[in-house]
Each structure stands twice: as structure tokens, then as C-alpha cells.
């Protein structure tokens, strides 16, 4: 257990080195945030009644999305892991008396965490201070806020286990481009990364309910703004937790299967 914690510390601290690039990234995030909000605003101003969620809920959703982008990002590719797979250095990893699944899991989780800790705070603060209607609203109420925090933590574990699974599949298929990006676009679509899930066409929303992706960030952001409340929120968080166990289980199993007949790339 201790070794995994040390491993967490190492990747976490190395992630914190990129402070300047995080700051430089802020301007991009605000620009994109503003462009998206203005496009939605133009639609809302044209036909407010057709909108599936209130405008302030949507703006909150978009800003939270920008703030926690690096944590909830589905396209996460760990360059070190990918290059290890490609050049065969993975064989050294296999010699070590550690479980590869948990090691990768922790590596991905800690790098995501260090990235988001550098970025989320300034985005949240500035977004709060923006003039109406561009501002991030306060949480709906205390209940919403507590459930938002719980659901964010579970969401972070969920996205990490899905990411780890994708890396294991890349290890197996030796292709991190074609299949992986196809999977990620589909996952992003059902997660609400392209448009919030409520804006998806009806039949896609139905499918999204049976997939894990919408529980990553769509759920916590909507709990925050009060779009999902009460018993629905509680039951959704339970489903979210269930998906974490299921995705870790599948990833762990895949990892075991693959390692038993692994082919290392020479070089």
C-alpha cells in the first residue's frame, strides 16, 4: 500500500511543475467558455421556450466544465505509458512485484489531480465575478453542494477507471489512435462533453442513461445547479458508485487476461 502512495506522490509532484503552462491555459479556457456561452445565449434569446434547461444552469454547467476540464477530460492520454507500450519498456514494469493495474490507475489519477488543482481555482473565482448572465451561480443549496462534492469525487474515480481501461486496451491492440479516438468521441458524446446531455436528441439521451459516461461530470454539474435534486440525486449517485465498481472490475480482469499472453514490442 505504501509503495502505491509513494508512487502517487511522485506523479503528483511532477505534475505540479507545469504552473506556467497552466496559467497560460487559463486565457484559452476563458475564451472558449465565452464563445460557447455567447452561442448558447444567441439561441436562448431567439427561442427561450425550446431550451431543455434554464440559462443560468447551463452557464454554471459550462463554467464548471471549464474549471474541472483537466480532471474530467476523457481524452486523457498518458504519454509515458503510451511510449512504454510502443518501445517495449513495459517489460521492465512487468518485472516489478507490483500490480500493474493499480499502478497505472494511480498514475493517471494523480496526474489528473495535479493538473486540476493548478487550474480549477482561478477559473471558479473569475467566473463567479463575471457580470450577469455570464457568471457562475452559487450552488442551489447546501444539500446540492454536499452532493456535488461527493459526486465529483466519485466521478473522478469513474473517469480514471475508464481511462485506465482505455490504456489497457491500447496496450493490447498497440493502436492508440484509430480505435481509441473512436471510443473517446463516442464516450464524450454520451458524457455530455460535446453538448450537455439534456441537449442531445431524445433517443441518444435514452442510450446515455444505460452507459457510465453521463455519470462522470454531467451528473455532478447538474446537481450543483439544482437541475437534479432530492431522491433523484441520491439514486443517481448510487448508480454512479456502482459504475465505478463495475469499470474497475472490468479493467482489472482485462489487465489480468492480457498480461497472461502479452507480446512485448522489441526495440
Amino acid at each position: 500500500m505504501k509503495q502505491y502512495f509513494t508512487y502517487f506522490k511522485i506523479s503528483f509532484i511532477s505534475g505540479l511543475q507545469y504552473r506556467v503552462s497552466a496559467l497560460a491555459g487559463l486565457s484559452t479556457q476563458f475564451f472558449f467558455g465565452f464563445v460557447f456561452i455567447m452561442i448558447y445565449l444567441a439561441f436562448y434569446e431567439t427561442e427561450y421556450d425550446s431550451a431543455p434547461m434554464k440559462f443560468n444552469e447551463l452557464v454554471t454547467y459550462l463554467w464548471l466544465g471549464q474549471a474541472f476540464f483537466s480532471l474530467m477530460y476523457l481524452y486523457h492520454k498518458d504519454k509515458e505509458l503510451i511510449s512504454m507500450i510502443r518501445d517495449g519498456n513495459i517489460s521492465y514494469e512487468l518485472c516489478r512485484p507490483q500490480n500493474l493495474y493499480w499502478k497505472w490507475y494511480i498514475k493517471i489519477f494523480s496526474s489528473k489531480l495535479s493538473m486540476v488543482l493548478l487550474r480549477f481555482f482561478p477559473v471558479i473565482i473569475i467566473a463567479f465575478l463575471l457580470p450577469f448572465p455570464y457568471n457562475l451561480s452559487l450552488p442551489n443549496n447546501m444539500f446540492s453542494f454536499i452532493f456535488f462534492v461527493i459526486s465529483m469525487i466519485i466521478g473522478a474515480f469513474l473517469v480514471t477507471s475508464l481511462s485506465t481501461m482505455v490504456h489497457i486496451i491500447a496496450f493490447f491492440s498497440l493502436d492508440e489512435k484509430g480505435i481509441m479516438s473512436m471510443f473517446m468521441v463516442i464516450a464524450d458524446l454520451f458524457a455530455g462533453g460535446i453538448v450537455p446531455v439534456l441537449f442531445l436528441p431524445k433517443f441518444l439521451q435514452l442510450i446515455a442513461d444505460y452507459l457510465p459516461f453521463r455519470y462522470i461530470f454531467d451528473l455532478p454539474y447538474r446537481i450543483y445547479s439544482g437541475n437534479i435534486t432530492g431522491m433523484t440525486a441520491v439514486s443517481n449517485v448510487l448508480i454512479q458508485l456502482l459504475w465505478v465498481f463495475v469499470s474497475i472490475g472490468i479493467g482489472y480482469y482485462l489487465n489480468k487476461r492480457i498480461l497472461s499472453k502479452v507480446e512485448v514490442q522489441g526495440g
Partner: peptide, 14 residues
């Protein structure tokens, strides 16, 4: 896909 799904909800933009 953004454009298509937004126009599925709204009829026009400005």
C-alpha cells in the same frame, strides 16, 4: 454534432 443537436432543440439562431 454541436450544431445539429442545438438546431434539433431550437429552430434558428438570430
Amino acid at each position: 454534432f454541436v450544431i445539429i443537436s442545438l438546431f434539433e432543440k431550437f429552430g434558428s439562431i438570430k
